[in-house]
Nucleic acid binder design. Structure first.
Lengths: 162, 162
DNA sequence: TGTGATATGTTATATTGTAACATTAAGTGT
DNA sequence: ACACTTAATGTTACAATATAACATATCACA
């Protein structure tokens, strides 16, 4: 099977995902989604402009990126990380069902993002607490800031040198 | 006791707080801190420019606000809400001791912020979970987005009218 | 009172985000 | 195939946010 076929398979996979999500699979939308998936980390809209230009040879105006990202977020194919104003590809795009609470761990130094799963019970307790204070969660998404293992190691190294 | 004396008492209270926090109690710093306290809600740096001009008759360049806010945050007199890029006065400035985990509930519609206290055990479990994924929390602060009771009511009203 | 350190102001500019409108492309019915 | 409508993207302009580099002012202390 040639590279071209692999590529086409991937493209058609995206088309399928878009169709399932109920949004039209246009060239630009797929490119942005693909870029975000390829990048494997959270990107800002302007990061994506760069990424698409360098890695996909596609020059898009920032405005289009903003618009398309909004669309992808609304379709739940992409998550917006409010704490850092970046976007990340949903890891559940293959399981075609609404997914439960999503928790993101964001490294405040290198900005690496991990989508993790915490015990459902713990998240339920947390939600209950928040609701007991009168707040209704609008999205089942939590973002937590921390320092990832890599950056912890770097920090320790720097400290021992100083 | 005259208004003037009340004001002076308040000012001197601020001076005391600043001294305790180890930062010099300059006029501008106190003004910004006071403004944030008076406002009683989270403000962006540019919001604060407006607020100080209108309510304190003090015109400060945004740059100074940024700088002073950074300082106040470092001194733990003010919290920065990363999710909304706003600042809010710490509610514990009177208790002169390092305070434990702080949780903020932020209304995603009206931006009202409440600093709440959740069960220490729940927060400990949450921290443990986050750390078990290799992330070390850099600040004991959680921000949760939701819709406050007031805005919930407004939404229901709007829905019934439609 | 002079002098170094700290605090604030000025100017300029980078970055991020949106609004208003123009253009292009894609469907739809005849 | 044709005109016609709608959706998608691009262009331009600009508002809002944030920071960098440097200038000036203020304070503390010898």
């Amino acid at each position: 099977m040639s590279q071209k076929n692999n590529k086409n398979n991937q493209e058609s996979e995206f088309v399928e995902i878009f169709n399932y999500a109920g949004i039209k699979p246009t060239e630009k939308r797929i490119a942005i989604f693909k870029g975000l998936k390829m990048a494997g980390k959270a990107l800002s809209p302007y990061d994506l402009v760069q990424y698409c230009k360098q890695n996909l040879g596609l020059t898009l105006p920032a405005v289009s990126i903003y618009r398309i990202l909004d669309l992808l977020v609304a379709a739940d194919l992409v998550h917006k990380l409010d704490t850092v104003n970046k976007y990340i590809c949903c890891t559940h795009i293959d399981c075609h069902k609404p997914h439960p609470h999503t928790q993101f761990l964001i490294c405040s130094l290198c900005q690496k993002v991990e989508e993790v799963h915490m015990p459902a019970e713990l998240m339920a307790q947390l939600s209950a607490q928040i609701q007991s204070h009168g707040y209704q969660l609008n999205s089942p998404q939590f973002e937590f800031q921390g320092i990832c293992t890599d950056c912890q190691a770097l920090e320790e190294e720097a400290a021992s040198n100083a």
